[in-house]
Design a binder for these strands. Structure first.
Lengths: 347, 347
DNA sequence: CTGCGGAACTAGCACGCGCAAGCAGCTCAG
DNA sequence: CTGAGCTGCTTGCGCGTGCTAGTTCCGCAG
């Protein structure tokens, strides 16, 4: 053997030399550049040589020359990437990959980096779940990023954004239909997700008003066991019989606290969670919850990112979430005793 | 106003023009290029102009010219990014940012992408938790990536890698010290994490042999409630009194099944989880678990990636994990009744 | 024989930056 | 007075690709 390989990457010039054409031709063939007439024979020979040599275009050069990196950066809030989130991301990633884009996600940590990821990656689009802070927007602008979703002047508040409040409305409806009229909302104490928690809480409150139930008390339940116990005690004393929890973890904490306090779930206190995490089914008693169609949400994200990347309008696009109730023991029907007298005043 | 801004990104040439020096000088100043003598006055003026104009170097151009992207790609297995993982990633990200690198993570999905992320990002280093498949290594090679950790011919098996088996050993020791002699390992059914599950299982088995306990039955517990019930029944019939669970979720499923089957936890069956997820403290009974120091692990990852990126040797680096037992109700001391006769034959 | 138009390419610039090489001006030993 | 050595810069190439503006060849009508 004279030398196994030059350990140098294969470039378009190598293909050009191997085939005996110019580098431009190679580019035209491999990119299917419209407006160029290249004979079928040449096309074939170029493609074969590319495959044979294992050509991978240098993305840094592509990005520099073309001005597009074909990267979509998704900034996620700092909450757990549970299993439905993973499905969501996987689907979005798959859909974008099909369109020739790569999805990169980062969970936005509180500590501000010296070099934010959008600066390092040069993404074509930055997508977030909530509006970005002005500081971040300015940083993106300086990094040459013009396509930001949601735009810096998005007008829709988070709790009215499609999909965000649907789960909360289902939760309220479910408890109402079981006869509960005094409800409370159990928020998560984690400040990092305050936006989403607040959005779900206000969606729940609005729904309660519409249905004619009472949902005033919004209380944060932290990781500390005592806070859950305290909340359960206060709610029970106030005559609350149904609790809308921000997510399954909060619901679990409350159910645990209720059981420890000697309350029966769901007879004395019904609790419904959100997200249908695996934990919900395992808990004793098992937790009712709300599940969202992560695949559909992922596809929606991909579509939004693609349209933005290619400068197509987002407007005709509408997200139709598929949110479903998952009823389990923690809100079992027929078990809500002693609350009939409270809810007899309306149809 | 004649026109607010050309909407064009600020380049080094703009700074050069503003200051009245050549573009090279700008580069030398901003990169602190060694071996160049630039007067302090010029340095200051360049830096001021850069700040004033909001200069952000184009990373695509930097990567192309310098051959380094200063990106570290971490490929994670497809398991949940729970809260300790997030701490881990955050710390690693912070440490790398300090050194001028960006950390990008991707959870390796089963579906193979048309364009893997390492191709799109051109990272200097790709780091994984387990050895990469040959196919992936080949793909990285073709994309011009030479620095891969662990190397394609890493010799240390996963269960002997520092940190991987420590938790399992602690779990076994804990149950042993409580008097349990017949143990079982509860694996997770998810095939995506089979490697890690297997590594923990074999570490647990080895430890049990060393201590003189019996741990033979390794059984997968899936999401379906029936599989947990079935496993609990089989183990209880076989006289197993202590269960080492792969993680807290599996532990929760087992404890739930045991309670439903009328067994007392921990009196009839002690269960210890792994990872100390928030769920562990909330469950009723609360779950004993094992917690690892995610901050330390994150720093270790960053250090490994940095050394590899800069071509420094990894060898003198040693990971000293800080793995600790968290004892809760599911293995409460003194509650293990009726097993004393089984464990009287050794010191 | 000339002109023309289309097919099938090629030459070469631009992208923004890192960095090697070079060059003017000055100082100072010999 | 020369030239070696230093400071403080500038010129310019190269990275690999996209893409515009050609150029060559060739068939065919006039």
């Amino acid at each position: 053997m004279p030398k196994p390989a030059p350990a140098r990457r294969v470039t378009a010039a190598d293909i050009a030399q191997a085939v005996g054409v110019s580098r431009a031709t190679v580019g035209f063939v491999l990119n299917n550049t419209p407006g160029q007439t290249i004979s079928e024979g040449t096309r074939t020979r170029v493609r074969e040589a590319a495959a044979r040599l294992g050509y991978r275009p240098n993305k840094a050069a592509t990005a520099l020359a073309g001005g597009r990196s074909r990267i979509v950066l998704l900034m996620l809030p700092d909450w757990p990437a549970d299993f439905s989130m993973r499905t969501y991301l996987e689907e979005a990633s798959r859909a974008l990959d099909e369109a020739g884009y790569s999805l990169v996600t980062q969970t936005h940590s509180a500590a501000r980096m010296a070099r934010p990821l959008w600066e390092a990656l040069n993404p074509d689009v930055v997508v977030g779940w909530a509006r970005f802070e002005d500081q971040d927007v300015a940083s993106m602008r300086a990094a040459g990023i013009t396509r930001i979703v949601p735009g810096p002047d998005a007008q829709v508040p988070l709790d009215e954004a499609p999909g965000v409040g649907d789960g909360a409305r289902l939760q309220v409806d479910h408890l109402y239909d079981l006869g509960h009229r005094r409800l409370a909302f159990a928020a998560a104490a984690d400040p990092r997700i305050a936006d989403l928690v607040g959005a779900r809480a206000s969606a729940a409150q609005d729904r309660a008003v519409i249905r004619g139930a009472e949902l005033r008390d919004v209380r944060a339940v932290g990781d500390a066991a005592c806070s859950a116990a305290e909340a359960v005690r206060a709610w029970h004393e106030a005559g609350v019989t149904g609790i809308v929890a921000y997510n399954d973890e909060v619901a679990a904490a409350l159910v645990g606290a209720a059981v420890r306090a000697g309350l029966r779930v769901p007879q004395d206190l019904a609790v419904i969670g959100h997200d249908d995490s695996p934990l919900a089914a395992l808990f004793v008693p098992s937790l009712s919850s709300v599940r969202m169609d992560a695949v559909r949400a992922g596809r929606f994200l991909a579509e939004v990112a693609l349209r933005e990347a290619e400068g197509r309008p987002l407007s005709p696009l509408r997200y139709e979430p598929d949110t479903r109730l998952v009823v389990r023991e923690s809100t079992a029907a027929g078990a809500a005793a002693g609350i009939d007298e409270a809810g007899a005043d309306d149809a």
